[in-house]
Amino acid sequence: MSAVPLEWVLMLASGLFCVGFFGALSRRHAVSMLMGIELMLNAVNINLVAFWRYTQPDEVGGIIFALFVIVVAAAEAAVGLAMAIAIYRTWQTVNVDSVDSLRG
């Protein structure tokens, strides 16, 4: 992997992060926001693995952290989607700007 410098991988991860950032902040659909967040988490994961690969290939710390991120992302997805379904059931919509009432 010496052919690809670390900067390239980091650039890719930062680009992915920014795309996910835009998606998470601008889409109205709750599930779409969740997808944006997943993209951001994946960008972080790429960073973790890249740093592991280029700076500390003798340790497994980078991989371990990436795995923890995946675990957290899975938990977040489960809870987030459950929330989306609960919201849909109550308001009949999943557009987050429609969910503006305090009635619960």
């Binding site: 599930v31 997943e38 997805a77 989607l81 989306a84 849909y88 009949q92």
Partner: peptide
């Protein structure tokens, strides 16, 4: 799961 949730909350 995402696909599933989208389909369950289809509008």
């Amino acid at each position: 799961l995402v696909l599933f949730a989208v389909m369950l909350t289809r509008q």
